[in-house]
Structures are given as structure tokens and as C-alpha cells.
Measured scan of single mutants.
Amino acid sequence: HHHHHGSGALAALHAEGPLAGLPVTRSDARVLIFNEWEERKKSDPWLRLDMSDKAIFRRYPHLR
């Protein structure tokens, strides 16, 4: 159930192989992290948004 927010940013994801479903670039990863943060913020208003490279690598090590 993907609803768009204002920016309408869509992340490019790997379609197949071992990385299927994972973001292709760091900016794609940022979109995913932001979208998930927006969702989680509803139940956790104090949740901090962390889109640093460090956060991205921790989450998606293949982007190193």
C-alpha cells in the first residue's frame, strides 16, 4: 500500500538477483529511509530522521 507524499519521489530498486528489492543508489536509499520514517513517525512522533551516509551503510551495506 504505497501512498505518495508531496515530493512523489520513487526509489529505484534492484529488480533481480541477490540485491532484489534493495535501493540502487544512496539517494534511492534516502527515499526509502524517509518514507519509512514518515510511516513510523505516526506511532512514534519523536523518531529522528537519520539519512546520513553512516545510517545508509548500516542499513544497506551493499551501497558502501
Rank of each mutant, 00 (worst) to 15 (best):
R64Y: 14
A9Q: 13
A12E: 13
F57C: 06
W46A: 15
L47Y: 15
A11V: 10
R58K: 13
F57P: 00
H5V: 09
W37N: 01
R58N: 15
F57N: 11
A15W: 11
E39P: 02
K41L: 10
P18M: 08
E39V: 11
G8D: 10
R58V: 14
A15G: 12
H3T: 15
H2D: 12
E36W: 07
D44V: 07
L13K: 04
H5K: 11
S43R: 12
H1E: 11
A55G: 06
R59V: 14
Y60M: 01
D53M: 11
I33D: 01
A15E: 14
L10K: 12
E39L: 11
S7G: 14
F34A: 07
R59K: 14
P18I: 08
P18H: 08
R64L: 14
G21I: 03
G6M: 11
E39D: 11
A9K: 15
L19I: 03
S27V: 11
A29E: 01
M51R: 04
R59W: 03
H2V: 13
A12H: 14
S52T: 07
H5S: 08
A12F: 13
E16H: 10
H14E: 03
H3L: 12
V24D: 01
D50M: 02
G21T: 04
R30T: 04
H2S: 08
A55N: 12
K54L: 15
N35T: 09
H1P: 08
F57I: 12
K42V: 11
S43G: 08
A9W: 11
H4F: 14
P23W: 01
H14Q: 03
L47C: 08
F34P: 00
S43L: 12
L32G: 02
L47R: 09
A11C: 07
S52L: 01
H3Y: 08
L19R: 03
A29Y: 00
H4L: 14
R30C: 09
V24Q: 05
R59G: 02
S43D: 11
P18C: 06
I33H: 01
L49A: 02
L10P: 14
E39M: 10
H4Y: 12
H4K: 10
H1V: 12
H5D: 06
L10F: 12
L47P: 04
I56T: 03
H1M: 08
G6W: 14
D50N: 07
L63F: 03
H62K: 00
T25C: 08
A55T: 10
A29V: 01
H62M: 01
R30K: 12
S27P: 05
H14M: 02
T25R: 07
I33L: 13
P23H: 00
A11E: 08
V31P: 00
V24T: 02
R58F: 12
H62G: 06
L32Y: 05
E38Q: 11
L49Q: 03
E38H: 13
R26C: 07
Y60A: 01
D53A: 06
E39N: 08
R64N: 13
K54C: 09
G6R: 04
H5P: 15
L19P: 02
D53R: 09
Y60H: 01
E36M: 06
R30D: 03
A20S: 09
H14R: 03
S43K: 06
A29F: 00
G8Y: 09
E39H: 07
K41D: 06
Y60C: 00
R48F: 09
H2T: 08
N35D: 05
H3M: 07
D28W: 03
S7Q: 10
H62S: 02
G6T: 14
A11H: 05
R58A: 10
R40C: 07
S27A: 08
I33Y: 02
R40V: 03
E38S: 09
Y60I: 00
A20L: 12
R58H: 14
M51L: 13
L13T: 10
F57D: 11
L47E: 09
I33P: 00
E36Y: 04
L32C: 06
G17M: 04
P61R: 02
P18V: 09
T25L: 04
R40F: 10
R58I: 09
A29I: 01
H14G: 03
L32Q: 06
A20E: 09
L22K: 07
H4S: 11
H14L: 03
W46G: 10
A20D: 05
D53L: 13
A15V: 13
G17F: 04
N35G: 08
H4D: 06
L32A: 03
L63G: 00
F34G: 02
